[in-house]
Nucleic acid binder design. Sequence first.
DNA 1: CTTGGCACTCAGAGGAGAAGAGTGCCAGAT
DNA 2: ATCTGGCACTCTTCTCCTCTGAGTGCCAAG
Lengths: 337, 337
Amino acid sequence: MLDDRKLAVLRAIVEDYVSTHEPVGSKTLVDRHNLGVSPATIRNDMAVLEEQGYIAQPHTSAGRVPTDKGYRLFVDRLSTIKPLSAAERRAIETFLANAYDLDDVVSRTVRLLAQLTRQVAVVQYPSLTRSSVRHVELVPIASERLLLVVITNTGRVEQRAIETHEPVSDEAIAHLRALLNARLDGCWLTDVPDTLADLPEQVSAGERALATTVLSVLLESLVEKHEEKIIIGGAANLARADLSQSLRDVLEALEEQVVLMRLLGEVGDPSSLTVRIGTENPHESLRTTSVVATGYGAGDQAVARLGVLGPTRMDYPGTMGAVRAVARYVGQILAGS
Amino acid sequence: MLDDRKLAVLRAIVEDYVSTHEPVGSKTLVDRHNLGVSPATIRNDMAVLEEQGYIAQPHTSAGRVPTDKGYRLFVDRLSTIKPLSAAERRAIETFLANAYDLDDVVSRTVRLLAQLTRQVAVVQYPSLTRSSVRHVELVPIASERLLLVVITNTGRVEQRAIETHEPVSDEAIAHLRALLNARLDGCWLTDVPDTLADLPEQVSAGERALATTVLSVLLESLVEKHEEKIIIGGAANLARADLSQSLRDVLEALEEQVVLMRLLGEVGDPSSLTVRIGTENPHESLRTTSVVATGYGAGDQAVARLGVLGPTRMDYPGTMGAVRAVARYVGQILAGS
DNA sequence: CTTGGCACTCAGAGGAGAAGAGTGCCAGAT
DNA sequence: ATCTGGCACTCTTCTCCTCTGAGTGCCAAG
């Protein structure tokens, strides 16, 4: 029901609107893109596109603006992801290659994405589910307080304080530490609960309370909390975007971890990009923003997600190219470390 | 040269302007505060205050607005820090008491400050200079890659990846780890360089390269980098503030660690509050913002700083009260852990 | 199906005028 | 010597008006 020319018109409208930020009319359209027809013809096409909900008029005597549905069609069928320039690729590579630990990789990634896309970048810390335990450390820091540190093979370090509610001897701690390391070395994090299920029964009665406490903290910190850590960058780019929505609402939404989690979406196939446009977003105050996200990971299996958030009127091909490229390089870095 | 009534007028102007966000005229001033004189008298006082640079007029037929100099006088001589309500104190206490590790303390603190003051909160991670080494861990994560983890008595965990550029045996690692722990246990971080200066000479030739590499990374990560970590929260509050400056500039400044460091100022006496008003700030694009900061720490010695940033037209007594109170409670929490 | 012509609509710019808040100054009162 | 009421004056801001121009929809002809 939409012939080729109408699609070309829609594409032209999206591209023009994205670059000028102004409603685009039939005349400017034929001037800028050489469609071989007259403005009147374009007007007819526009009328159809509007009727079908792909474009809209801010007011009667203005040009057209793409709707969310219009952007959706554009992204799905009218555009191709734009590869980065060689210079950009090199810049990404060297910038990420210089990172010296996981924190640094993540913080560099978020800055990189923000700069490349000139939008707000969001990066989730790698999930622990695909990691295995490298080492467990148990350190007394006060008479009734321990610090539990778990180091994984992906270079991530989880720490957690433990209140024992009773004094604990150094021997008990050393014993438990040895036991934990013997049991867990190389163990997949997802297998930790099973592996340690019978731990309290394996220790002497005097150490049982301690073992139980440590175990519960360990399970809790590894299994529940770790997927929630997300960092954002480039918030200043929001101010440029000049969203119709109150900037404050968007900033507020961005400060809530839960919202961010849902924004990035489910961890899935890292080779596919998720694009959420305007009202497709799961949060009310992000009605005029779009999210481009993808998974990333050491191998072909995603361990977390990253993406950018910007006004619906963003340069989708370019943004998608940048997100995809950064995700790939981060994957390489993680695999290499 | 400024008599009591003129000071009272200045105080009233500041208070009114802060609460209404509108230039305040002589008539509204006598209406709202019961100074026992007529508007005309106030006008004379205002003329003097303006001549001396404490207040200014946005335009000829408008009321007066305090200048930075006016706020400075207000803060220094005309106001007292406002204590928090009992309810607020309880809220702070319970909110912070539930934190389970250092990361959590800091992130709760920043959220608390932002919420309490409805402004942007900035918290620096506790410096390591007052801490001592609790434990050093050295873990192989690849054939030529180690992870160095240092745990301090303040509950902070520093991690750093090390490239050895040559395969290292497990025995060498175990040996070095034992050596490091024996040497460093309980050692003040500031003393680490001295304590370890002769480390390379203490190991066999085969391990010397490794020891040197590890040592350099250890010193670097402990001595140089650790003071720079700062987190911010409540950026959404900036949008409400409606600064005359472009919001974007401020957001950009806030994303730069270096700027933030200089904003918070030198770590000094934790019992004193630093207030930087408008152009007193060390950064160009923060000309219309003020910073209220203070040190905090486990004992009477500050280990880091925290504060808030808001428009120059902020409620100084209330903000100062909140910052002081939060700093105290955080100190208590850190001391208790 | 496309095209040129034409009347129509409406947002936004620009200007004039009125309203109102606030000032500075002066002469008289305290 | 200081305070006060009165008054003229200065600006900003709000409203109302008109005008302009971009852009549209529709129609009849190619």
